[in-house]
Design a protein around this nucleic acid. Structure first.
Lengths: 187, 187
DNA sequence: ACCTGAACACCGTTCAAGT
DNA sequence: ACCTGAACACCGTTCAAGT
């Protein structure tokens, strides 16, 4: 099936980007993983930038679907945030992987505009969700305050993941998250 | 002067890494910038990994010297943190650049161990300094608490820079920092 | 001590050619 | 519709050769 080939390429590419980055991603290595020739990868994704765009778009779509479902689970504010944080923790647990869009934010300069738009959308999906969660606890906070806090929580978690990855030690992630809670950032 | 050549390579390389990342760094482009041939770059830095190590080591050294001097300036707690945050902001102001070690943390998988050690040292230099600043305001806090808070502040600022870079808009950095302060993370 | 040209195996991309 | 081999200009690295 050719659709499966496209899916296989995206799967292998996502893992590679989250582990080594978009710039380090190789069409020839990708082709080997999937069992085709590198020229064939270009049939499915004309350029590397097109692949980056498709990866980020799917990543944003999946986050949106996951978070929408999570919000319906009727967990408490604290439980929702714990589950949210656990997603970022799980990436580190899998071979020290990083959030795909966090990685792409670092590699911003190498991305085509079409991929940057998807990175932006992923951020919006996350901060919109955090804003909803935060608003249910602080209904009296101003819209600006809620929005800024949601963005801050997202950035803080991305930073915790980045720093922990740079130490190659997930214990740092846990320590940082605990300190965020202790300081009241999540409350 | 050959020492100047080495310095010129490091200067051009640092700017390139902070803008485009270590993986995207090209010895051939670097050679053009400096006015030599790419084979000559290898005379000064045998491998790309050696260059990464030298860049990160100098970055950590410079941070250590700068922060030691800053601590002696006898500014208030709030002023010190504002000055500290301004350093990360200044990177974004210069062509959306990122902290060299934040970038390298994302590219962790591509780095030799010798460079990873320097990224770790940069983190330690920053968190040690933040711990001192935080301790002067909260002398009664436990050592664990102070250390965790210092690490959290560092990670949060790195995350703010990463997210703002991914949006290509420094206004997000300012908004996130303001929300950190509002939540009490810096206090 | 410092630089270079040439070679090697890599890389993304293109394209004519296959099925 | 999907894949391929061959070519192109790139890349890091090595090394014998220059000054």
């Amino acid at each position: 099936m050719s659709t499966d080939t496209r899916e296989a390429i995206m799967g292998a590419a996502r893992a590679a980007v989250q582990t080594s980055g978009y710039t380090a991603l190789s069409f020839r290595e990708l082709a080997k993983d999937v069992g085709i020739k590198s020229a064939s990868v270009h049939y499915h994704f004309p350029t590397k930038g097109d692949l980056a765009t498709a990866l980020a778009a799917r990543y944003a779509d999946e986050a949106q679907a996951y978070l929408a479902e999570l919000l319906e689970s009727q967990q408490s504010h604290d439980q929702l945030l714990d589950t949210y944080v656990a997603v970022f923790r799980a990436a580190l647990e899998r071979d020290n992987r990083m959030c795909l869009c966090g990685m792409m934010a670092a590699e911003y300069d190498e991305l085509p505009d079409s991929a940057r738009v998807e990175v932006e959308r992923f951020t919006a999906v996350n901060t919109d969700w955090l804003e909803k969660v935060f608003s249910s606890r602080h209904p009296k906070a101003s819209a600006e305050k809620r929005h800024a806090r949601a963005l801050a929580i997202f950035a803080a978690i991305e930073g915790a993941q980045l720093v922990a990855r740079g130490r190659g030690n997930i214990a740092f992630f846990d320590q940082i998250i605990a300190a965020y809670k202790d300081a009241g950032l999540f409350s």
